[in-house]
Design a binder for these strands. Structure first.
Length: 379
RNA sequence: ACCUCAAGACAUA
């Protein structure tokens, strides 16, 4: 069983999900680890349903199974389901807490992340890294620094992480060079740091020097090419990648969008195995600024029909589109839907876009759709 | 032999 399970995991790691499944089905004997490996494989290829049904078919669960299920939900944006799993599990390890913390950090739920971080019975460097990222994502660099400074235990990974997030790339590189052993997370972090600075050569150097790659590192490199105008290299890399997920697809999609290759973007989009809010939003924003705002509106509607919950970014995109095409009622409706239907808080961008939209149509802010509070904010 | 931290969309002139 052990060697078969190891093979199963190896197949999954290299993106051969079909091979893993075939092996799984023919295995004479399976244990919890075998099932867990399969569960994780499905989660990582963004197939939550398959992960869920694997979980439900398992003869028994251990802590790792629960954590893997929790993570599968978290990775695919099902925050509620992730939390429900967390509450349902019989015991929690630090991995469960970290997974929950990471889920909140990724979805921008800073308060929930802080709550989780303080409620945890103990914290390791992974918890600190996640918390620093949560603050940094929300542009609370001061707080990120504060956490970084108040940590009771530090190691090199956390230093690296902290420096990357506060934008001190030279210091980060210094730490990186001093690390006695670097894991793939550290390597990828360094790669992204260079990528963000536009140091394409340095990023490629890191990528080539890495002892192993996985979807995340491949995608980080893909993003480096795509966002620096090297769309052909990006495409080549994408085709070579042994494993792709929604993030990889969206990264390439964005590369096409940024380089004005609208046709290719559309074709690629419809070939995607799964779309999430970010992939849809990319399509919305591609068309939002052009004269074909109605196409953007169509994409937005299709996203809703797909059952996805729009983000503030996607709403802004569709509002910009409405503004350009003069769909005032429609645009106001999306704005109102933010708080009424989706539990989102409109930001300044949404208000100013709304004002421009009304202004263009010669309507006053007291158009009749808004209550006093909104009207006063608009004016 | 299996789980958590690292990768993707966004505004303004």
């Amino acid at each position: 069983v052990v060697s078969f399970t190891a093979m199963l995991g190896a197949y999954a790691h290299h993106g051969h999900l079909d091979a893993s499944m075939a092996l799984f089905n023919t295995m004479p004997e399976r244990n919890v680890v075998t099932w867990n490996t399969m569960l994780v494989a499905h989660g990582q290829s963004d197939d939550v349903d398959a992960a869920k049904s694997t979980f439900e078919s398992m003869p028994e669960w251990n802590l790792v199974s629960w954590n893997a299920m929790l993570q599968a939900y978290a990775e695919n944006g099902y925050l509620d389901a992730a939390h429900a799993t967390f509450t349902a599990m019989p015991v929690h390890s630090i991995v469960s807490w970290n997974a929950m913390l990471g889920a909140y950090a990724h979805s921008g739920c800073l308060d929930a992340a802080i709550y989780t971080f303080t409620a945890m019975p103990c914290r390791d460097t992974i918890s600190y890294n996640a918390m620093i990222a949560a603050y940094a994502n929300e542009a609370h660099i001061q707080e990120a620094r504060r956490i970084f400074n108040c940590m009771d235990e530090r190691n090199l990974v956390t230093w690296l992480h902290g420096y990357v997030h506060i934008g001190c790339i030279e210091k980060a590189k210094g730490i990186f060079d001093d690390m006695p052993s670097r894991n793939i997370v550290a390597w990828t972090e360094m790669l992204r740091a260079y990528s963000e600075e536009g140091h394409l050569g340095a990023a490629k150097g890191i990528f080539d020097a890495m002892p192993q790659h996985n979807v995340v590192s491949w995608t980080a490199m893909l993003h480096t090419y795509a966002s620096n105008g090297h769309i052909n290299k990006a495409k080549t890399l994408f085709d070579q990648m042994p494993q792709r997920n929604t993030v990889s697809w969206t990264t390439l999609l964005q590369g096409y969008a940024q380089n004005g290759h609208v046709r290719e973007a559309v074709t690629l989009f419809w070939r995607m195995p799964e779309m999430d809010v970010l992939s849809w939003t990319t399509m919305v924003t591609i068309f939002a600024h052009s004269g074909c705002g109605w196409i953007a509106v169509e994409f937005f509607r299709m996203m809703l029909l797909d059952g996805l919950k729009p983000s503030g970014v996607s709403i802004l995109g569709v509002m910009v589109a409405c503004k350009h095409v003069g769909l005032v009622r429609e645009g106001c409706g999306y704005f109102l839907g933010m708080s009424d239907d989706h539990g989102l808080v409109p930001h300044e961008e949404h208000y100013s876009c709304l004002v421009e939209m009304l202004d263009r149509a010669g309507k006053s802010p007291s158009y009749g759709l808004f209550d006093e509070a909104a009207t006063s904010k608009i004016s």
